[in-house]
Design a protein around this nucleic acid. Structure first.
Lengths: 395, 395
DNA sequence: GGATTGATTAATCAACTTAACTGACCTAGC
DNA sequence: GCTAGGTCAGTTAAGTTGATTAATCAATCC
C-alpha cells in the first residue's frame, strides 16, 4: 500500500479533489455545505471554488434566498465540462439481428443523445462501426467530439484487460487482438470495455434494487446465454482473465458417468428454456416470449415455473455457497418477463436447495440495463479522471 | 468515496504515516532510502524520524560503512513497540482432542512464544480458555501484557462481523453471542476473528505459493470438513454474514430426483475420503493417514487418486467458473498428504471437467498455516493501528 | 588532501486558519 | 411604511504550520 507523502502542493491538490468530488455527486452545494463536508475554512473553500470555476469544471447555478444575510451562491459541476459515451454491442438486438445501441450523457448523467443501429458485423469492421456510432452520437447531441472523455463499451463476452482483448464473444471480429487499442486511438478518448452483465450490475447498483446493499450477485438470464456479475462493496469481480461469472459452462456433477456432461447453460440457457416451454405446452419463439406467456397465465404454468426455478436454484446454490452475497438479483430479459412469479418460484426452490439464506430480488430497471450501466461506468470514469487530473495539473 | 481534506497538520500526519509504513515493511532503511521512497526532502525526513523515534516506534539499528562520507544511520521499526498474538482454536487438535494453539510475535514478525494446550471445551468456557492462553503467551515471551495490541483468533467456522458472533462451529460455547466482545473486554486489546481457512490463505499470500499472485482461491481439505478462501487482490472475500467459502454444504445437481441430496462434503469431506480409502483397500484411521498412505505407494493407488481428484474437480469447476482465479491452491492436511501426486491428479481431472484453465498448486507451507496466517493478520492489524494512531495523535 | 556523502541549519515559500471586516438581506419595532 | 438591529455570505489581513532549497559542517574513502 503506497501511502502518499508530499508538500503543500499535494495538500492543495487533495483539497481541490475533495471539493470537486463532492460537487460531482448529484446535488448542488453552497460554500457552507462544502465547508461542512470538507471541514476546510471559509477562505480555503473560496480559493478552491475560484480555481475550479476558472478551470471550467464548476459553475454557479443559483442563489439561496429567504434567509437573513446575502444570498449564498449555489455551485454545481458544469454539465458541459465533459461527456461520457456508452456503446452496447449485442449479437441479437431487439430486431433479432446484431445491433449497436449507444448513448451520450453529460457530467450530471443527463442523456443527451441515444441511437440504435443494426450492424452487419459480417461485412462491417467493428472498429469503423464503433467509431462511426460515437461520431454520430456527438453529432446528434450537438457536442464537440473532443469533449467526450470516455467511451464505455459493453460486449456480450468477457474482457481480458491484461491483454486488452475481448473473448468468449460471438460477434465476428470483436475478438480480434488489438481492436480495443485501435478504437481508442481512432477516437482519441479513453475506452473502457466490460462484459454486458457486469454493466447491468453497475446499473443495478446505481439506480436499481442493489442501491444500498454492500454486495450482491446478479444472475443474468438472457435470450441466449446466462451470466453472473459479482459486486463486492461496489467493485466488480472480473477474475484473472475477465472470466469471472462465466457460469454458463459450469459443469454439473453427474453421479453415474453414463450421463453426458451437462452444464448450467443446458439447464436454463436460452435453448433449455425453449425446450422447457415446449414440454409444458407454452408457445413462443424466444425464451422471453415463452416466459412472458407463462407469466401472463400463472395458474396454468405453475409447474413450468417450478421446474425452471429448480434449475436456476442449482446454479444459484453454487454461487451462494461460494460468495454468500447479501442480495441476489435476477436480471435480463427472461427475468424481466418472469417478474414476481419467477421470483417467488426461485425463492421456494432455493429454500429447498441452499442451506444459506439469501435475499432474492428481480431487477427494477425497465430500460436497457446494459446501456445504462455503461453510461454509469463511463461517467464514473470521467469523474475520476477529472478528479485525478487536478492532482497532475498542480504538479 | 470520502476524500481527505485538511491543513498542514494532515500533511505532517500523512508524511509520518508514510514513513512509518515503509519502516514497518521488513527491511532496514537509511534516510536516503526513505527520501527516495517518499520523495520528501532531507530536512523533512530528519524531522519525521526524530518524531517517530521519540514516540518509540523506530530505532537506529546500525550504521552503513564502506562508502565515502559519514556512516549513514540505519533505521527500522522497534521490534518491541508492539506485539500481536494469534490463537487457533480447533475441534480436532493434533492429539485428536480439541485444542488451542497460540503464538506471539513482535513487530517484525519474529515469533517470541508458542504454546499448545488441549482444552476440554465441554467443561471450560471459551472466554477463560482464550484469555488464559494469551496471558500464558505474554508470560512465556516475557512481554508486558499491555504491549500486546491485537489478538487474532482463528476458528473452525464462519465469523459474522456484523453481529460479532461465530457461527457454523462445532466447538461448544464458541458460538455464544457476545463472546468476542467479552474476550476483547477481558483482554483489553483489539480482537480479530476469522475463519481458519481464510487465515491459511493469509499465510499462503504472505509466505506461501500465492505470494506474487493478484488473486487466488484456496481449497482447504481438512480432516473433517472442507472450505474455501477467496483472495481478490490481497483482500479476502467474507460474504454478507461471513459465510463465503462455506462450500461444504454446496448442493449438487442430481438429474433424477430419486437420488438423495448430495453436497460437496459428501464427495470429498473427511468421511467421504475415509470411505473412498476403504473402497480402494487403503488402510488408515484418518483421512490424512489414508491419503498419506496412498501417496507413499503411488503405483498401487492411481485409481484412488483419480477418483478423489474427479470429485475435487467437481467443486473446483464451480469455483473457477464463478471466480476465474489466476491461481488455485490446494491446502489443508489432506492436500499436504497428497502432495504432488494429488496435484497432478487434480490437474488432469480439471482439464477434463472445467472449460477455463487455471493454475493449480499445492501449499508450500509446512508449518501450521492457520496459526501463521493468524499471526500475519494480527501483525498487519497492529501495523495499521500504529500508522492510524499517528494521524489521531496529531489532531 | 580532495571528493563524496550524511546530516543539520537558515532562509524562503506555499497553503491553511483564525479573526476582523464589509455588505446584503430579513425581521421587528415604531 | 420606514428604519434599526441581527444574521449570514464572503473577503481581506495577519499569523501559523510545515515543506523546500541552499548553504554549512563533518565524517569517511581514495
Amino acid at each position: 500500500m503506497p501511502r502518499l507523502a508530499g508538500s503543500s502542493k499535494l495538500l492543495r491538490a487533495m483539497n481541490e479533489s475533495a471539493a470537486l468530488a463532492h460537487l460531482l455527486e448529484p446535488g448542488m452545494l453552497t460554500r457552507a455545505d462544502l465547508r461542512r463536508l470538507t471541514e476546510l475554512s471559509t477562505p480555503t473553500i473560496s480559493e478552491v471554488l475560484r480555481r475550479l470555476t476558472d478551470a471550467g469544471l464548476v459553475t454557479v447555478v443559483g442563489y439561496n434566498s429567504g434567509r437573513p444575510g446575502p444570498n449564498a451562491e449555489i455551485y454545481a459541476a458544469d454539465p458541459d465540462a465533459a461527456y461520457a459515451a456508452a456503446v452496447s454491442v449485442r449479437d441479437i438486438g431487439p430486431s433479432g439481428a446484431p445491433s449497436v445501441v449507444a448513448a451520450l450523457c453529460d457530467l450530471t448523467g443527463a442523456v443527451r443523445a441515444r441511437i440504435e443501429n443494426p450492424v452487419d458485423f459480417l461485412h462491417t469492421d467493428p472498429r469503423t462501426a464503433l467509431v462511426d456510432v460515437v461520431a454520430e452520437l456527438s453529432g446528434a447531441a450537438g457536442v464537440p467530439a473532443d469533449r467526450v472523455h470516455h467511451v464505455q463499451l459493453g460486449v456480450p463476452g468477457s474482457y481480458d484487460s491484461g491483454t486488452a482483448t475481448i473473448r468468449h464473444v460471438d460477434v465476428p471480429g470483436l475478438n480480434r487482438p488489438g481492436l480495443v487499442p485501435e478504437i481508442a486511438a481512432a477516437l482519441g478518448t479513453r475506452v473502457g470495455v466490460d462484459n454486458d452483465v457486469n454493466l447491468a450490475a453497475v446499473a443495478e447498483r446505481r439506480r436499481g434494487v442493489a442501491r444500498e446493499v454492500d454486495g450482491f450477485a446478479l444472475l443474468w438470464l438472457g435470450q441466449e446465454g446466462l451470466g453472473l456479475a459479482i459486486d463486492i462493496a461496489g467493485t466488480l469481480i472480473r477474475g484473472a482473465r475477465g472470466g469471472a461469472g462465466e457460469i454458463g459452462y459450469m459443469p454439473l456433477y453427474s453421479p453415474d458417468s453414463t450421463h453426458r456432461k451437462v452444464d448450467l447453460q443446458d439447464l436454463f440457457g436460452g435453448a433449455a428454456i425453449l425446450a422447457l416451454g415446449r414440454d409444458h405446452g407454452i408457445t413462443g419463439g424466444t425464451p422471453y416470449e415463452i416466459v412472458a406467456a407463462a407469466a401472463a397465465a400463472p395458474d396454468a404454468s405453475g409447474e413450468f415455473f417450478t421446474h425452471l426455478a429448480d434449475r436456476i436454484a442449482v446454479g444459484l446454490a453454487a454461487v451462494i455457497a461460494v460468495l454468500d452475497p447479501s442480495l441476489v438479483v435476477l436480471a435480463g430479459p427472461v427475468a424481466q418477463a418472469g417478474g414476481q412469479t419467477l421470483l417467488t418460484a426461485v425463492k421456494g426452490a432455493l429454500r429447498r436447495a441452499a442451506p444459506l439464506e439469501s435475499t432474492i430480488a428481480v431487477t427494477t430497471i425497465d430500460d436497457d440495463a446494459v446501456l445504462l450501466g455503461a453510461l454509469d461506468a463511463g461517467l464514473t470514469a470521467v469523474r475520476e479522471a477529472l478528479i485525478a487530473s487536478i492532482r497532475d495539473n498542480q504538479a
